[in-house]
Simulated assay, not measured.
Amino acid sequence: MKVLQIVPSISLIYGGPSQMVLGLSTALAKAGIDVTILTTNSNGDTGQEPLDVPLGIPVEQDGYNIIYFPCSPFRRYKFSLPLLQWLNQHAKEYDIAHCHALFSPVTTAAATIARYQKLPYILRPLGTLDPADLKKKRRLKQIYGNLLERPNIAGCAAIHFTTEEEANISYRYGVKTQDLIIPLGVNIPDNLPKKGETRHSLGIADDVPLLLFMSRIDPKKGLNFLIEATQKLIKKGLKFHLVLAGSNPQDPVYEKKITQQINDSILANYTTITGFVKGELKLGLLQDADVFILPSYYENFGIAVAEAMAVKTPVVISQGVYIWPDVETYQAGWVTTLDIDALSNALETAILSPQTREERGKNAYQLVKDKYSWSAIAKQVIDAYQRLQ
């Protein structure tokens, strides 16, 4: 079976949802699927240099091919006319296309081409059909959605949602759709840094609970709740150290605002802000954290939550992170409402309960093994491809 994965960019700057395509492609290739990723060389929307990659030719990686195309004529919107021309010429050589991200001009146009070329295609919205997300630039999205995305939704073989909650709340422009509910996957690391090494490098003592927020610094992530909740913990006299790991090159003003807010508050002496992390530092933080926190307003999956659980770190998440039913069922951490007091209480319980943290960390690891391993997810995706092609 020959499969196209179409995604606006796989640059690290765009976070986990884009990177997920690489993990899926690796797993599919291991299962014998012929996978080609079509993407652009976009590396940010605020003046960053594009990715330094070969353009227009297949690049082999982990058993699959990636073809990068230049952003042209609109770099700002990750649009690529060469990508679309290539797809129009080669669509009939493939059995199915998996298009990642709605409301992105290149994937919108790619789905349209697939429809006209009679190539079955699956849409993965990445949370863009969430009513909360549709409120952003509401008027523009109403026009764009009805004119461009509605026909693509009507013509798709299926929509790929990553949680039941995402499927339940997503707006489909009045179209009846076939839904696939298949979670995202994570790799369980074979090798981890020496335990405690990363916390020591940041000057955090062994007896101080390390609370980790690792995600994009974005208003939807609930940092307003986290800042208020942790300030309440300080006033109660609890001992902890918060590590804020992440950045937002797309919205540096908001990132600077959060940094300033922390530095001007009582949190300043209890917080380390690392910026974007990857590699050994990322793994070390995930492993050394006593609790991972993500109090998002809405999150169609929350890949960083799964990455934390993969190294046996329990999580404190809001019900806005749509894998919360799994976390609650497995007792893999603590689930709270979007409320400062509820979040503060959950964090206090976690900080004061080391044995419970250890137990819930083991449960978290089991959850990842049972439901979020790439091999299991690849099998579900292949079954869907075979039914829909």
Results as ranks from 00 to 15, higher is better:
Leu223Ser: 08
Ile234Cys: 10
Lys239Ile: 12
Asn263Thr: 11
Asp251Arg: 12
Lys282Tyr: 03
Ser104Asp: 00
Ile303Met: 14
Leu226Cys: 01
Gln85Tyr: 04
Phe213Lys: 05
Ala154Pro: 10
Asn168Asp: 12
Cys99Lys: 00
Asp190Tyr: 05
Leu294Trp: 01
Ala310His: 04
Ala378Pro: 08
Ala101His: 12
Asn88Asp: 14
Gly23Pro: 09
Gly155Cys: 02
Gly361Met: 11
Ala384Tyr: 11
Ser318Arg: 06
Leu267Arg: 10
Asp341Ala: 10
Lys256His: 15
Gly16Gln: 06
Gly32Thr: 00
Gly15Thr: 02
Ala109Gln: 00
Leu242Ile: 11
Arg75Ser: 01
Thr39His: 01
Thr163Gln: 08
Ile6Gly: 01
Lys195Thr: 11
Ile293Pro: 03
Leu242Thr: 09
Val381Trp: 09
Glu307Pro: 00
Gly246Pro: 06
Lys239Gly: 02
Lys236Phe: 02
Arg75Gly: 00
Val305Gly: 09
Pro8Gly: 04
Leu211Arg: 04
Leu352Lys: 15
His100Tyr: 02
Leu281Ala: 06
Gly185Glu: 11
Gln380Ala: 11
Pro325Val: 04
Gly127Glu: 07
Lys78Ile: 06
Pro209His: 13
Gln287Pro: 02
Asn191Asp: 06
Pro325Cys: 08
Pro120Gln: 03
Gly222His: 02
Tyr77Gln: 07
Leu347Gln: 05
Ser18Trp: 07
Lys257Ser: 15
Pro249Trp: 11
Glu49Cys: 01
Ile159Asn: 01
His200Gln: 13
Lys221Phe: 09
Thr198Ala: 03
Asp207Phe: 00
Ser42Trp: 00
Ile169Arg: 13
Gly275Phe: 04
Gly203Gln: 03
Arg138His: 15
Ala91Gly: 08
Tyr385Thr: 01
Asp190Ser: 14
Leu223Gln: 00
Gln61Glu: 15
Phe301Asp: 01
Leu134Tyr: 12
Ile96Gln: 04
Pro131Cys: 11
Leu140Ser: 14
Lys379Met: 07
Val368Lys: 04
Asn363Asp: 13
Thr36Tyr: 06
Gly222Glu: 07
Thr349Ala: 10
Ala332Arg: 13
Glu165His: 13
Val316Asn: 08
Gln19Asp: 06
Tyr270Ala: 15
Ala332Glu: 05
Thr108Pro: 03
Ala154Ile: 07
Ala332Asp: 10
Leu129Val: 05
Tyr144Thr: 12
Ser170Tyr: 07
Asn146Pro: 07
Ile262Val: 15
Phe79Asn: 02
Leu123Thr: 02
Ile122Ala: 13
Val277Cys: 08
Gly284Ile: 03
Ile37Arg: 03
Phe69Leu: 05
Leu286Asn: 06
Leu294Ile: 04
Ser11Gln: 02
Tyr322Val: 00
Leu38Ile: 05
Arg139Met: 15
Ala97Arg: 08
Pro105His: 01
Phe69Thr: 13
Tyr330Val: 09
Pro17Cys: 11
Leu347Pro: 00
Asn263Tyr: 12
Tyr385Val: 03
Asp218Thr: 12
Ser72Gln: 09
Thr313Ala: 06
Gly23Cys: 00
Leu212Val: 13
Asp190Gly: 04
Ala346Asn: 08
Val53Gly: 03
Pro151Ile: 11
Arg139Cys: 14
Thr356Glu: 15
Phe69Asn: 12
Asp288Ile: 06
Val277Gly: 03
Gly47Cys: 08
Ile159Phe: 08
Ala378Tyr: 05
